[in-house]
Design a protein around this nucleic acid. Structure first.
Lengths: 349, 349
DNA sequence: TCCCGAAGTTCGATTTAAATG
DNA sequence: GCATTTAAATCGAACTTCGGG
């Protein structure tokens, strides 16, 4: 391995000077261009690359951010991760990716490992966070800039980025209503999920202002579960139950895209054509939604942007720490969802 | 931050002894249990955590593995990443995730960053590698244990893990043939993709042994493209072309799941029902396949296992380096695919 | 005082060589 | 020579201090 001393020897200067020149440190102002050139050429020739371990040891910086996902297989993750990766790349940070598989022990072990690596910031993708909120305690103790995506928080030590579920819920129902649907079935989210309540609130608000009556018998609840597939399966099962009731409905508003897929599947199997006989709308705009048959009308969470936003918050926090500024209170961003109309909804015949 | 010296002071021993005890180093044989206990208690009480930078500086080890993905949004990635993450976790390595977005410049920059971090191994997920093979050169130069997933290689400096495409191709056609299909349309992979040829060879072999004739007019080729969505779109378009030809077919064998989804979409739009009027089979068994309407019959790549396998190879390589054993030649694994029968295929009426 | 450069210290842990009884 | 412990060197870069012109 070629060290700074090798470069010093080659160039005929001391390692101090080499360090100053190569880092463009303040003192390099005083160093004549000729010296700089010589040093740079020597470094170039030797293929010198500074040892990051040594550098980090001195500077106490790792230029690394921890990313914790609760379940990678959730399709929700992909685009968020993209946004995170892309924004970190531009800021020259590298992400360490960990997947806690919704297991507490794994969460704890990974958190320890990340902290040992002196990550400078932490981003948590808490899509399925109805784990104990005790986790928050562990996180708060860590005292490094942290942002949580997808889970509403009111701590002021941990920042958060979530979609505006209430607006999203309204958007979905409003779309169905404006198409002319009046008999609508609903699949609500599991109670323990922080998204469920506000999303439903948005739906109720919209129903109220449209003077639409929601028949409680047409409202089904997703059970609590810990993986995305079961959301699909539950969506399927609940829709079958709904169909079996024989109470006609011309549209179904699902909690998320996964349950919407389940619903479409159940409808298709019962010979009910989507959207001709029943419209279906989801929430999230997962990658699959655009590919589905029929392609899914849904309320999009701007996932890449949310990932980018979380990185922005964390990087700001890191800069505050580095510059020894006071770390401001946690930031809580609520981003606007967007209706994406595709094939799965249309006016009732 | 509490250092080893603090522990030394607290326990009344030197930092040397502390280090020996806490690392269970060979010399700790000679250290009486009483001393050990004292030191361990002191460390415990102070909440001592060794500084990884300092440790790495001495040991020259990072306990980190680089993971390079060519395009995260490819659904193929998710499960492979899961397998990688899980296996690394068990081996106590942490992954640094990078996504090169199919861009050469990004590949180079990331590779440099990873090398600077002294990653001990590298795993490349080359789903879309019809980039220049020059990349291989850069990789070979790096001289750290490297495994490539999803791209056939015959270097002996870089290991690889791929699915047996030939067997997979046969499996797919055999399934359709055994259901009774004789008029079959095909969507082949783009020529530049290393998977395309062997997969097609498997199909031809199977056709040959089944005495099935492949009508060249019923064979379409996916164009070269650099993102998964375009595979869907191309599948859709090619299927429309196929339908427009008016040459009847009762089944369609797609290159991968994405193009199969495109095909199903096109068929549905033309009022052709899957599987009643036309069966469709894919390749990969992406997460969406199980959720699709109809759920997709496909040839599964054991993706998590492939990720795990790549980690195994790399970790073996790392151990060889650490123990200064000769690094054996690169390993090239070809894993068996598996037919997964779902709703999208059935016997022709 | 300004400019240029070097010697020496520091970061925190590991390891070698050596000192005790 | 053995069991027990430690001082000092080391890893590689960065920063502080200082000296000569």
């Amino acid at each position: 391995m070629v060290t700074i001393r090798d470069v010093a020897k080659q160039s005929g200067f001391s390692s101090t000077t080499v360090s100053i020149v190569l880092n463009n440190a303040p003192l390099s102002r005083y160093i004549p261009v000729k010296t700089k050139k010589k040093i740079e050429r020597a470094a170039e020739r030797l293929g010198y690359r500074p040892n990051q371990f040594a550098r980090s040891l001195r500077s106490k910086r790792s230029h690394t951010v921890g990313v914790m996902v609760f379940d990678m297989t959730d399709p929700y993750c992909t685009l968020v991760l993209r946004g995170i990766e892309n924004t970190l790349y531009q800021a020259s940070y590298l992400p360490i990716l960990t997947d806690v598989h919704n297991e507490r022990s794994r969460f704890e072990r990974y958190l320890e490992m990340l902290l040992d690596r002196r990550i400078e910031g932490l981003i948590v993708l808490a899509n399925w966070l109805f784990l104990d909120i005790n986790l928050l305690g562990d996180l708060e103790k860590s005292s490094i800039p942290t942002a949580m995506i997808g889970c509403e928080l009111d701590t002021d030590s941990i920042s958060s980025v979530i979609v505006d579920n209430e607006v999203g819920g309204s958007l979905a129902l409003e779309h169905l209503h404006s198409l002319g649907h009046r008999k609508i079935a609903f699949i609500r989210g599991p109670k323990a999920l922080t998204d469920s309540l506000p999303r439903w609130r948005g739906i109720r608000n919209c129903a109220h202002s449209c003077k639409l009556e929601i028949d409680p018998r047409m409202v089904a609840d997703l059970p609590e579960s810990r993986d995305p597939i079961s959301s699909f399966e539950a969506g399927q099962k609940l829709t079958e139950d709904l169909i079996r009731q024989k109470r006609p409905f011309t549209a179904l508003l699902a909690f998320d895209d996964m349950s919407a897929f389940g619903a479409i599947h159940a409808l298709a199997r019962s010979g009910i054509r989507v959207p001709e006989q029943c419209s279906v709308i989801g929430f999230d705009d997962v990658a699959t939604s655009a590919l589905y048959t029929p392609s899914l009308t849904t309320v999009r969470q701007p996932m890449a942007a949310m990932g980018a936003s979380a990185v922005g918050i964390v990087v700001d926090g890191i800069n505050a720490v580095v510059e020894k500024r006071e770390i401001g209170a946690a930031v809580h961003r609520k981003v606007a969802p967007e209706l994406v109309v595709r094939e799965s909804t249309r006016s009732p015949l």
